[in-house]
Amino acid sequence: MATATGTVRTERVRGQFFLPAVITGFLALMLGLLGFEQFLNAMTLGAIYALIALGYTMVYGIIELINFAHGDVFMVATFVSIAVSTTLLGQTGAVLDIPTLIISLIVLFTVTIVVMALVGALIERLAYRPLRNAPKLAPLITAIGVSFILQNIIQFFVGPYITNVPQLFSTQWAFTIGESRVPLLNLFVIGSALFLMVVLQLFISRTKTGRAMRTTAMDRDASSLMGVDINRTIMITFLIGSGLAGAAGVIHGLYYGNTTFTLGFQSGLKAFTAAVLGGIGNTAGAALGGFLIAFVEVGAAAFGFGRWGGAIVFSLLVVFLIFRPTGLLGSSTGDRA
């Protein structure tokens, strides 16, 4: 997060032109390599990873905690979205009436995001805040504990099964470009994820609260002296991070149409990797990392190496960090040791 504003002017100028050029080049390369359908698969998967990764990176940026429970917050969100769709909206499948669909989706996203934001803040209050001044690894262990608790609450109330999520947005709507089938659902997923990311960036860079978050991440004591309410700022970070996980949960449900209580672990691990790859603490980096990992995974499956997908992702991570120890966009001065 520290680099979002940039401290060194030359780097900032370079970043303005360099980064978009690299991203465009990478996307073009992937499009050529994978073909349009796989490209779309990767972008969709990447959008979900990116939304989860944002929560990891924001929390890490501000309190240096690897929030192992974050993946499970995402998992819980998928179940909350089921409850909202079926109980609140009374929908169990595709909504074909466009106005109803729009209203349903707005309600679905809003309610789930709000509920998950509150859940996230509650977890912070109960399990992390009491340990604010404890040894660094103590909250890591409570995070693991919370992860266990969330998984098993869901398992207890819903069952240990894979559960269906109503796909309000029809999976059958699609058009074709040339040979390729383009489902509208994928475009909707990518679009809504990008929209949320832009809103987040604006919030962080333009609002007073966003500034408080950035300064707290840079130097908690100094910000406190400058009148920033640290506890409130951290709480807001959790609200936003968990809210984004909530949105990711809704999107996962709409796109895949199912969920299970163990969903959070794998997705969380991948998203966390994305956050690190992007330069942990940096929101734009986390989003980029999410897409990058999705491209690697989809690429592996596209060429018949799905078995090795996980190994390729993590090998890439290890090698990448050796050559660029602070991640894609991590600041070279961000010494958090």
Binding site: I280, I322, D335, R336
Partner: peptide, 9 residues
Amino acid sequence: LRGDYLAIV
């Protein structure tokens, strides 16, 4: 690598 980057590796 510093701190948690080592952890993730």
